[in-house]
Design a binder for these strands. Sequence first.
RNA 1: GCGCCCGUAGCUCAAUUGGAUAGAGCAACGGACUUCUAAUCCGUAGGCUGCAGGUUCGAGUCCUGCCGGGCGCGCCA
Length: 546
Amino acid sequence: MFKLSLRTEVYNKISNSFFEAFGKKPVDFVVEIPPEGFGDYSTNIAMVNAKFLRMAPRQIANELLESLTKIKWFKNVEIAGPGFMNFKLSESVYQELLSKFVDNVEFPKFDEEKVQFEFVSANPTGPLTVGHGRQAIIGDVLARVYKSIGYDVTREYYFNDAGKQMKALGHSLWVRYNALYGRKENFEEDDYKGDYLVNVAQKFSSEYGDAYVGQWDERVQTLFVSYARDKMFDWIKNTLDKIDVNFDVYFSESSLYKTGTTDEAMRILKAGNYVYEKDGTTWFAVSKILPKEEDRVIIRKNGEPTYFFSDIAYMLDKYKRGFKRVYYIWGADHHGYVPRMQAAAKALGIPDGFFNVIMHQFVTLKSGDEVVRMSKRQGEFTTLEDLVERVGKDATRYFFAMLDPNTHLVFDVDLAESKKMENPVYYVQYAHARVVSLLKNAQEKGINWENATLKNLTLPAEIDIMRFMGEFQEVIISTANEYKPQKLCNYAYSLSEKFHSYYNSNKIVDVKNRELSADRISLCIGVKNILRTVLSLLGISSPDSM
RNA sequence: GCGCCCGUAGCUCAAUUGGAUAGAGCAACGGACUUCUAAUCCGUAGGCUGCAGGUUCGAGUCCUGCCGGGCGCGCCA
């Protein structure tokens, strides 16, 4: 009996042998898949424990070798180089592993803690940009992964639909509306000049006619603000829906003031002496907690709270809702915000580890040789919706997920759009479709794989694929621990690569050799099950045929 | 000026978190379909991992200093 992670199992066996041989627990070592030609797994245990035991690495390895060779699991153990130990596993280990993946794909169970991912959180002043798209996919994929390993996950969208910017939005719509009737009204400085409001204005005019042309007062403003806001929010939600990103909670900033959370936050800050008055404004003493940081205004001279203060209250709210950890997914432009939020957490008496930020760098689009830069301010940007409509949901999700959030993403629109081999999305999906097609073929030929023994899977390529299946759980866990969705893409891609290669050089379905066929089909089913699982974590479809 | 992130093949990116010979795809060149989907496979070529030091059995990975790029340093959100 073993879990689905071969590596962990190998690790434990080595660790136990070490204890038996030396009467001590080993210091940290690793078990890894070595380069070609050094066996199935290798460990550096002898080298990293040399100092600890005051013995030469190769001598340690020699002593371990004796006890390890007695374990049935290992077919072969060798010592190489400066003291690496290389292992080959028995075929039966791989057979047992594969049989589990043929049945179904089990996730490692980690924890059931309540955690929250908050992302996108764009205010309803315009359409989502491709930058939001990256954030949406990173957040959604991580949420799916955390859910899969047992966490109680909430996806949350925080927004502010009150205040200055909403008034600017309403006014901008009104300007566009007037223009429809040939009346020139001027934009204010902070207005939204993107032409996306033209359509909204047309819609408005078809519902309300010309009743508000040339008229601007508080009543009119309220109408235009709420109309524009609703339309923008509909638009945003509709776009998110197109990429299968669904939030559990839409959280309004203004609700913090209605429920008294802001008052409570202020009380706590004051009680801890983190608040002071200066120049008619109220400050939060960030420097009291982080001496290198500057203090920040939380209540303006005009009496209005700052965005930062709302965020403090919002964090308190999250904490009170019982989350053990919350993750904020932020673009690189927000990194300066991290220290002050950490200070706020401290001042609120929230334990370390609660507040976490997952940062991602910016996105540029590339089409041909043309690089499209994003600038929301100037009203020039590609909307997420346009992108999705051009390349489709699957490619959009894959491309946003496939790079380390920490690197700049150049989204190659032409590549994402192409249905050719160079497109990694299709490459992976094709592997899945191929297996399905194989199964159909085998079924037609009357090959029964239900009772496959798996004993004929002895080719290096077959061992390699099975060993790689044994990495599945590791991949899930490191995706979660490191907040790196691209690990899923890389894993699915590599598995597909191994499969395609195997498929090309070996006949899977062969009526002349039914037993072998049954075994090979089982291997393919394992591949298919894992691919489908990983793709679903990425939110990408697994087509049966292409 | 200060802070954060990045720098790997011509291009876009990996590299099992300190491991053995730094790997893929695209682009270039050459092969494989009377055979389970050629949206595939196989091969050739391509590198001082930005530069210089340091830490150790061992560095693309960790530390220091430079160079180059991105972002930030509001009583904006």
